[in-house]
């Protein structure tokens, strides 16, 4: 199973813990974590499996952070699916 952010949205990112994300198909605006914004940017380029996303997370985060990120990732993906800004393909 893969995840994919079909439409590249728009981001308001000013190096804070949160990022504003505008999703053009729904017209909705979301306040998401910086890590969720990172995932959405990557998943707008191409669909990825959970394993690929974990590899990405490993390269993007420090070892200490990786443990918590890898635990949180499945839940975060589900949250983004529920918000209709990510789809499972």
């Amino acid at each position: 199973m893969q995840w994919y952010a079909g439409t590249p949205g728009e981001f308001y990112d000013c190096d804070e813990a949160t990022v504003v994300y505008f999703h053009p198909p729904s017209g909705n605006t979301h306040l998401i974590t910086a890590f969720a914004a990172y995932l959405l940017r990557e998943l707008a380029r191409r669909p990825m499996t959970l394993e690929q996303l974990l590899q990405y997370a490993a390269s993007a985060t420090a070892a200490d952070d990786y443990r918590s990120v890898s635990c949180a990732l499945p839940g975060l993906l589900q949250d983004l699916v529920q918000l209709d800004i990510l789809e499972q393909v």
Partner: peptide, 11 residues
Amino acid sequence: RSRTESFIVAA
């Protein structure tokens, strides 16, 4: 206060 949170509240 945070700019991104202010964005959401202003919206």
